[in-house]
Design a protein around this nucleic acid. Structure first.
Length: 202
DNA sequence: CAACTATTTGCAGCCTCTCT
DNA sequence: AGAGAGGCTGCAAATAGTTG
């Protein structure tokens, strides 16, 4: 967080690839992050969300991670730390078919085109005014950070075990049915459905 | 080929503010 | 004015692909 604000001018290089490249996720790791393919950064993000959700951080040293049964299968150890975690993650991340990569990279590249004209990356994370139904679901008064809404939704889905890995879909409980108006939704379409509840950016 | 990209928390150093 | 306390900022570490 501080790195971006302090040295944004210094960090002009890098790009859509690297850690932002979408990779395939092993079945073991899929049970934790709930996706079949994600970028490394997203995987790490989801993993930390999972760790917090299940209180798997060592109280004495929050960089250390105590593995539950699922993480033990993934990492093959009872405990690890945030640095080793990235190393162990590499075993569960494999590059997607090269044919698929250009389009994805292109998409991100297009989004970051003309970087000299774009002030900072933080401007891509505005607050959005959400529908009453979503505001009620999230427990907010009407506005919410765009990314946090999706994150909260995933946290809720995982907490209530609403994922169906077999069909890569999400089973809607009463709250989600009220929000989305259907009994199940494809995991890949979650962000699109969520976007329907965004009224305007602030 | 080095730098950059994202993510996390702890630690060190610097700066500012308040109190004596 | 000097000293102490507290807050803020930046770096460290791992990962690998992309870019200049």
């Amino acid at each position: 967080m501080f790195i971006i604000s302090s040295s944004a001018s210094k960090r002009k290089r890098g790009g859509p690839g690297g850690l932002n490249k979408v990779c395939a996720i092993s079945p073991e790791l899929q049970t934790v992050v709930g996706e079949t393919a994600m970028s490394r950064t997203q995987i790490v993000k989801q993993l930390w969300a999972y760790i917090r959700q299940n209180n798997l951080q060592d109280p004495d040293d929050k960089r250390k991670i105590i593995c539950n049964d699922e993480l033990r299968i993934v990492f093959g150890t009872d405990s690890t730390d945030m640095f080793k975690m990235n190393k162990l993650l590499a075993k569960h991340i494999t590059p997607l078919d090269p044919k698929d990569q250009p389009s994805e990279a292109k998409k991100v590249k297009a989004a970051t085109a003309a970087p000299q004209q774009m002030p900072t990356i933080n401007q891509n994370q505005p607050y959005v005014v959400v529908s009453d139904a979503l505001a009620k679901f999230l427990g907010v008064e009407g506005t919410v950070p765009h990314d946090d809404a999706l994150k909260y939704l995933w946290d809720y889905i995982k907490a209530n075990q609403l994922e169906d890995p077999a069909s890569a879909s999400i089973l809607c409980d009463s709250s989600l049915q009220e929000l989305f108006g259907c009994e199940s939704i494809p995991a890949s379409g979650l962000s699109d459905l969520l976007a329907h509840h965004f009224i305007q950016r602030t």
